[in-house]
Simulated assay, not measured.
Amino acid sequence: MSTTECTKFSFTTQDGARLHYRDTGSGKAVILLHGWGASGEFFEPQMALAAQGLRLIVPDQRGHGASQDARQPLSVGLLAADLRALIAHLGLDNYSLVGWSMGAMIAWEHLRETGLAALDKLSVIDMTAKIVTDDEWAHGLAGGYPAAQVAQTAAAVRADWRRYAKLSAARLFARGAAPDPALLARLTAIMRGNAAEGLAQLWTDMARQDYRALLPTLGERCQYIYGAESRLYHPATFAHLARLTGTTQTNGIAGAGHLPQWEQTQAFSATLSRHLWGQV
């Protein structure tokens, strides 16, 4: 089901969880997957793209936003299974995926499980294939993020998520720029509305993931959009990921950090639209 105006729906998964999603516009189906600790509202500026003949489907992933029914420990695999359930519920046989931050991992996990037959385009937004760094992999979180720090992060989330959410929200914005106070407050409030335990579980599982072997199968159908001033990842990471993927589709958004869809909405949306329509 799709409408010309943004409408909210929900469906029940096989394990009984009630998950919520937004569905607006008609035409090419595009599923936008938000990041860790966020919600579908983080793609609000892109809803205007529905006027271009796009059907925009934006789930609140389990444990996030309105989809707080986490009946199982949260994991990348579980959220990817929820994505497959949503695709089946909507009867989609061809779609594009837009994965911002953790959302890219959910997209990759889904594609690793199901293959690429139904995939039109994939846009990866400021995310790497492996967040943990080691002697052989420098393209994880900026500044280095060894496996030994994962448990510390999860413990900090469990101990005081309200504080950690505020710090995390501030890190979404570009280096050297002061975020709009009202926007920062709004995004912080959205993040604080999510349950700490599920986020700690999910972060721990994210740190186990490594999608490098999948990347060469994607080729030019995959593009990377990143914030040129991201606090989380270096531009060199996306040049490296593009080489692994076999794509020339890399786009750094000037003046943006980890949140280019909000910080530089016009440039981001134009870049996303060109790729979705096959325009280089």
Rank of each mutant, 00 (worst) to 15 (best):
I253H: 02
A242S: 10
A242N: 12
A242V: 07
H275S: 08
R243A: 14
Q266P: 09
A254H: 01
T247G: 12
T245A: 10
T247W: 14
G278C: 05
G278Q: 06
L276D: 05
T265F: 09
Q249F: 10
G246I: 05
G255H: 08
L272K: 01
G278Y: 05
L276H: 02
R243N: 12
A256S: 06
G278N: 03
T245P: 11
L272I: 01
F268T: 02
W277A: 15
T250D: 09
F268V: 02
T250F: 08
A242Y: 09
Q266T: 10
H258F: 06
T247C: 13
G255Q: 07
T245M: 13
R243V: 07
A254T: 00
A242T: 02
W277H: 12
S269K: 02
A267C: 13
G255I: 03
A267H: 15
L272S: 01
T250R: 10
A242M: 14
T248Y: 13
G278A: 04
L276M: 06
T247P: 14
W277F: 13
G252A: 03
T250L: 11
Q266G: 14
G252M: 03
L272A: 04
L244I: 08
S269N: 08
Q261T: 08
T271S: 10
L276I: 03
S273C: 11
F268K: 05
L276Q: 00
